[in-house]
Amino acid sequence: MSSTEQGTSSAAPAEPTTAPESAAAPEVPESFYYVHGKDKVVHKVSAGALQHSALIHGMISNLGYTEEQAKANPFPFENIDGDILQMVVDWCNQHKGKPTPPEDTNLPKQKEKLFDLVLAVNYLEIKELLTYCCKQVAMMVKGKSPEEIREIWMIPTDAEDEAAEKEAKKRAGKEAAGETAAAAGDAK
């Protein structure tokens, strides 16, 4: 199943099968689970595709999540943007049950998206996709000078870091002072 159904969690249309676990006999029709990201858009993913994610696979097999429960409560991933989750789900569907190729060229080229994807993939523990993403991130700086690397990876200089640290300390100090003042006010 390569389609990803979109809609609100309550209106998620689905044809849940009786097989609760992927470990069941292969003749049994495939089971489906539902996930949603920050934008609450629900994606329908087959159990086979979800095998890629160690996190979701662990949740399904260890917590004994049944199909009905899964339908009522889609896996919530509040820390992952909708479009990134879509990308991950698409990848999982494409590579369902297939040996993964050594190179994957369909990864996003914009660095913000790629970093988002890396964080999401790392969270969902999709090992193969993480390997590709890391290679892609490494390729960004291949043969670049320190200044170029700093620009590409958006790394602050040591001076900027120190300034940021000082500001943070100042802010923390102010907050602490505010709190003590408020506490004193309360006491009065």
Binding site: E112, F115, D116, L119, W153, I155
Partner: peptide, 12 residues
């Protein structure tokens, strides 16, 4: 805020 390379976990 968009994540940067500095937000990546150690393992990544």
């Amino acid at each position: 805020e968009k994540p940067t390379i500095m937000d990546m976990p150690h393992l990544v």
